[in-house]
Simulated scan of single mutants.
Amino acid sequence: MPSPLTETRTLPELVELVLAEGRDVDLTGAELLVGWENAVIRTADGWIYRFPRLGPESYRRELVILDRLAGTLPVRTPEIAWTGRRAEFAAYRTIVGATADAESLRTAPEEVRLRTAQSLAAFLAAMHSRFEPAERTELGIDRFDPRAMAAELEEALPSLPAAARAGLRTVLDAFRETGLARPEPDPVTLHGDFHFGNLVLDQPTGVVTGVWDFSCVAAGNPSLDLRYLLRDPADLGDLIARCYAEVTGRELDVLRARLAGDLEELTDALTEQRPIGPVLRSALSQL
């Protein structure tokens, strides 16, 4: 998966691709945002032009997934207005809402935190129930297997300093003691990139009203959709797990999710050639 640091296309280059479509667009004041899966032009007049970074197959799959999800979830999702003909990108209106105020959520009264957690859990429950196994196969939705990240870290062990090797072995041992180290017998449909940067609320400490970025949809243990939210200072993981169990009858394993997030953060650090020490210390502090 390409790191955002490897993006070589510039805002003017991507603007040219949009303009080449010959549509009536206003790109005045547009800005470029780059993530692991997509590069996005966000315009002042409320449009998103989303360019895939994982290749055409992933891009086309997301378009089909968005079409099939339309109207089936308890939140707004991107409604594709048009797609590029000369270059592959999708255009849709920005989903308007409030950005979560993580610090305010962390210190908010219990009823406020519970309301937000209930809305997050309701989205996850609905998302997880979409697409039966046969439809996931048809759509090319692969399994998300944390064991691949563990194998990558095992391979990197000999090249790490002694102190880092010892800490990483502790994390990997903890991983092996969870159900993550075994194939998931009853996978659900994961959003795959669920965090406060990919959603909006009705107010900064409110309920979820819109979610985007379905490029990482996968099949796996439902706990895995918590792995990014657990890094957020809002610290709603346990509440979301409780609300999810009330809705679905299925438990979310917060420790399992945290370990998966730690493995991913560690592999990302190696990919970007960042020191893994700070990430490792954070992971060890949670064990």
Rank of each mutant, 00 (worst) to 15 (best):
Ser3Asp: 02
Thr6Val: 10
Thr6Arg: 00
Leu11Trp: 13
Leu33Gly: 01
Gly35Lys: 03
Asn38Ala: 11
Val40Glu: 08
Asp45Thr: 15
Tyr49Arg: 07
Tyr49Cys: 09
Leu69His: 06
Thr72His: 11
Ala91Ile: 12
Tyr92Trp: 15
Tyr92Phe: 15
Tyr92Asn: 12
Ala100Val: 10
Asp101Val: 07
Ser104Asp: 09
Glu110Phe: 07
Glu111Thr: 11
Arg113Val: 03
Ala117Gln: 03
Ala126Asn: 02
Ala126Cys: 05
Met127Gly: 01
Met127Ser: 06
His128Met: 04
Pro133Cys: 00
Ala134Gln: 12
Arg136Ala: 05
Thr137Asp: 06
Ile141Ala: 01
Asp142Lys: 04
Glu152Arg: 15
Leu160Cys: 02
Ala162Asp: 07
Ala163Tyr: 04
Ala163Thr: 14
Ala166Leu: 15
Leu172Gln: 09
Gly179Gln: 04
Pro185Ala: 09
Pro187Met: 02
Val188Asp: 10
Gly192Lys: 02
His195Cys: 12
Thr205Tyr: 00
Thr209His: 00
Gly210Asn: 10
Gly210Ile: 05
Asp213Gly: 08
Pro222Gly: 11
Ser223Phe: 01
Ser223Asn: 04
Asp225Val: 08
Gly237Pro: 11
Asp238Tyr: 10
Ile240Met: 09
Arg242Phe: 02
Gly249Trp: 14
Glu251Val: 14
Glu251Tyr: 05
Asp253Met: 06
Val254Phe: 08
Val254Tyr: 02
Arg256Tyr: 02
Ala257Arg: 05
Ala260Leu: 04
Gly261Val: 07
Asp262Ala: 12
Leu266Phe: 12
Glu272Gln: 09
Gln273Cys: 06
Ile276Trp: 07
Ser282Ala: 14
Ala283Ser: 14
